[in-house]
C-alpha cells in the first residue's frame, strides 16, 4: 500500500486550473522530486496534499485512508508535514520554541517533553544557540529550523518546498546529505520541490513533472530529463 496517493486531483481558481487531474503515489522511504517550470502548480499541489487549500475534484489517500477534505491541522497530526517556500519563522518565539510548536500540537506533548524532543532534533540537524531570536539566524539556520519544525510533527510524509533556495553550493550539499539521512533513518516518504536540477538528480529516487497543472512525465530523473515533452516544457515556455 502506498503511503500517500492522489487520484485525479484537481484544483481550479476561477478560470485557471492550477492542478489538473493529477494522480500519483509515494512509497515509504522514497524521495520524490516534484519539478516543472514556474507556475506549473507544484506549490498548489503540496498545498492540496497538506490541506492548506481544498481540491475542486479528486481524491487524496494517506495510508489507505481518504483525507481529501480533512483540515490541515489534523493532517499534520496524522503525519503529513511540510516546509514553505516563503519561510515563516515565528518571530516572537526563539529558535527552540519554534521547533517545539509541532511537538506540542501535532504530537500532543507537554512543554517539557516538547522541549526535550526539540533539543534532540536541533542537535541532530546541527542547530546551536537555541535560545536565539529568529531574527538573529542565518539563512542556513532558518532553513534547518524550518526542516526541524516540520520534523517536530514526527511525520511519515514530508514535503520540502524549495528548501535549498538562497543557499550556496556548500550549504546545499549540507542540506542534501541531511535530507537523505533523515529520510533513511525515519523511513519517510519525502517530496521535494526544487528548481536546481543538480539537487533533484542527486537527491531523488524518482521525479514527477508538472506543467500547467498536469502531470506530464514520471520516472527516474535521468529518463525524465530526456523526455521530449519535459524538455519542451522547460525550453518552450521560455523559462530557460
Amino acid at each position: 500500500m502506498s503511503k500517500l496517493k492522489t487520484e485525479n486531483l484537481t484544483r481550479r481558481f476561477l478560470g485557471l486550473v492550477a492542478v489538473n487531474n493529477v494522480s500519483f503515489s509515494m512509497e515509504e522511504g522514497e524521495i520524490l522530486g516534484i519539478i516543472g517550470p514556474n507556475g506549473a502548480g507544484k506549490t498548489t499541489f503540496i498545498n492540496l496534499i497538506s490541506g492548506i487549500i481544498m481540491p475542486s475534484e479528486g481524491l487524496i489517500e494517506y495510508k489507505g485512508q481518504d483525507i481529501t477534505y480533512i483540515p490541515a491541522h489534523e493532517r499534520a497530526r496524522m503525519g503529513i508535514a511540510r516546509t514553505y517556500q516563503l519561510i515563516h519563522p515565528l518571530e516572537n518565539l526563539t529558535l527552540i520554541e519554534n521547533v517545539m510548536v509541532g511537538s506540542i500540537f501535532a504530537k500532543g506533548n507537554g512543554l517539557k517533553e516538547a522541549r526535550r524532543r526539540a533539543e534532540a532534533l536541533c542537535q541532530e540537524l546541527g542547530l546551536t544557540g537555541l535560545d536565539r531570536d529568529t531574527s538573529r539566524l542565518t539563512i542556513l539556520e532558518i532553513k534547518k529550523m524550518e526542516i526541524a519544525r516540520a520534523l517536530a510533527n514526527e511525520p511519515e510524509v514530508l514535503f520540502l518546498d524549495e528548501v535549498m533556495a538562497g543557499l550556496n553550493a556548500d550549504e546545499t550539499k549540507d542540506i542534501i546529505a541531511m535530507v537523505q539521512k533523515i529520510a533513511q533513518e525515519r523511513h519517510l516518504a519525502v517530496g521535494v520541490v526544487e528548481h536546481v536540477m543538480g539537487v533533484i538528480r542527486e537527491l531523488t529516487h524518482r521525479v514527477i513533472v508538472l506543467e500547467a497543472g498536469e502531470l506530464i512525465a514520471e520516472g527516474k530523473y535521468e529518463d525524465v530529463s530526456k523526455n521530449p515533452r519535459v524538455i519542451e516544457a522547460y525550453l518552450g515556455g521560455g523559462a530557460a
Binding site: 514553505y84 515565528l90 510548536v101
Partner: peptide, 10 residues
C-alpha cells in the same frame, strides 16, 4: 505570526 504555518504544526 502565521496561521498557515501554525496549521501545518497541528
Amino acid at each position: 505570526n502565521n496561521e498557515i504555518s501554525a496549521k501545518s504544526s497541528g
